[in-house]
Amino acid sequence: IHRWTGDDGLPQNRISALAQTPDGYLWCGTWFGVARFDGVKFTSFDHNRVAAFRDDAVNALAVDRIDGSLWVGTRDGLLRYAKGDWRRLGTGDGLPGPMVWRLLPRTKGGVWLDCAGRIAVATDHGIVWVSAPIGTAPDGPADETIRQLVSESGDALTFLTDSGPKRIRFGEPMASTQPVPDFSSPAWRAVLMDDEGRLVTAGTEEGLATRVDSRWNWVATSRQGWSEQTPVLHRDPTGVIWGAPRTKGLGQLRDGEWKPVA
């Protein structure tokens, strides 16, 4: 494991998001703008160099599936970098609020985004759709913080709130609740899906759970001395599931068991 920090040219040490564009560059989102890494050196983009940055705090990055442009969710606006040119979409362009929390690329190009408690879609035509506030859906509790944009299927997005997975279709205002048999949790933090679109691993306020066939099994819970939320889950190409408990470093989920790595 090699580690790069500010000493190597990163503008700031807290990485909020990562993305790789088709030209091979690795992009790092930080609180002090975006850094482009060529494998040797970092090049910074922030309000000192690029007018589109009203605020340098970056929450999310996504690469456009159609044209390879880079989408950047910041604390004040949605930015797009294409062909060497930065553009910004803000509340004056239909963004429901200044703060863009999360991004997920759409198969048809553009991105799903999470902003001001709503889901929206941005394309090269601008903000093309905004949902109703998620917390006021008739079937849901009033307070539902969006935790993750999980995956796209057709023209629908599956996303995760504190109260569990939801689905919303492009153009329709309200989200529907995704039923999860045999599993309830006080607050969901992150999930992974398999190739068939089924939830297979869940990080919750209570611990970490996996699904085998249709049954959920707790891997680590508060009853076993596990007091950690797991807000980040990631599956690598070999199928290993990586998890990051909030303060306990990094570990792997292997054969239904949690193995700390670092």
Binding site: L10, N13, I15, L18, A19, L26, C28, D236, W242, A244
Partner: peptide, 20 residues
């Protein structure tokens, strides 16, 4: 850990609260 990425060359990149 704040983020993770598989690059096209087979590398796994981890974004953390203290470096890449």
């Amino acid at each position: 850990l704040t983020s993770a990425l598989n690059d096209r060359e087979g590398g796994l990149w981890l974004g953390t609260s203290d470096g890449l």
